[in-house]
Simulated assay, not measured.
Amino acid sequence: MSEVKTVVAGIVNFLKQQLESDALNVDSRESVEVAVQCIETAYELTQDDISKGVDLLQLVRQQSGNASAIKAEAEKLKNEGNECMKAERYREALEKYSRAIELDPRNSVYFCNRAAAHFKLGEHESVVADSMAALALQPNYGKAHGRLGIALTALDRHVEARAAFARAVQLEPDNESYKENLRLTEEKLAQSGRPAMDLGGLLQNPSLLNMATELLSDPNMQNLISGLMDNNAGANAPGGVNALLEAGQALAQQMQAANPELVEQLRRQMHPPGGPGGPGGNPPAPAQ
């Protein structure tokens, strides 16, 4: 018997099992009976063919059981990795977490835990990568934002670290560690005389990227951007500039509503206290 007939016979067997159970009402039973007859006729199934059909329900149960077993093994590896971390066997912990990720790559906790192992080994770029992977799976994961901020601080990327700590505080407002890290980062930036705008930092700012992703997935924002592009094409037409300004203001309002704290941080980066031209700062250099 062909593979196709084996599958089709399995479907017929499943439908007949349903007919023998109490799962269907009268109308549904009639429909299923007609469907069985049509399938048997269309594929010219004999009783011998039907007896050789696969048990689809059993296959599904086996697959579910296998998936559960795989997840259980991944969780076991994660717990073993946690024990290795406590014993300061960081390289071994890293291997445990990596194996857990191979088994269950959709679990953000495994990436976040591996980020912690990377940090203990001084592998800060890998901490950033794993923290970002965790956030891609779970954008509102406070611990991942916190670990990202610590790694960025170690890499002297303080503007991005501030954004990561600020998001961590926003998600877990009672976490004193995140608050202290945010305070220290802001002090460091204030003392360093950092330029008002760090475009590279902004483009890699995970919180800004998260907000942009959320905004772009909003149908209202998609309509707004479409309108903005149309207005840009006709910016020289009468009223075109005003339309651009209105669209820009609407975009700013959407960003403010989505994440007011991040917008305030961006505003401070563009116009920092004590920066050029600000209180206690030097006047801006003349245009060249």
Rank of each mutant, 00 (worst) to 15 (best):
G193Y: 04
G248R: 01
V128P: 04
Y178N: 08
Q253C: 12
L15D: 05
M132A: 04
Q253L: 13
P195V: 10
A190F: 03
V36K: 01
R89F: 15
T153E: 03
A212G: 06
V263E: 13
Q222I: 10
G239W: 03
Q269T: 08
Q37H: 07
R99C: 09
M85S: 09
L208K: 05
S192W: 01
M255G: 07
K179W: 00
S192R: 05
L137K: 03
P283Y: 14
A133K: 01
Q63M: 09
Q17W: 09
Q288W: 05
S21V: 13
L103M: 09
G200I: 13
D27G: 11
L182Q: 05
P219C: 11
N82H: 09
E180L: 08
L77M: 14
Q63N: 07
E83F: 15
E264K: 13
E30L: 08
R194E: 09
G239M: 04
L251Q: 13
A235M: 06
A93I: 12
S217C: 13
E95A: 11
E214Y: 06
Q170S: 07
A74P: 01
Y178H: 08
D156N: 08
E40D: 07
E33M: 06
S177D: 09
E20S: 12
N236K: 10
L202N: 06
N66R: 11
Q17A: 12
P139M: 02
G240P: 09
R194F: 08
I150T: 06
V34W: 03
L171N: 00
A35I: 02
K86H: 15
M197P: 07
N232G: 09
N107L: 02
V34D: 06
E92M: 14
T6H: 11
G81I: 13
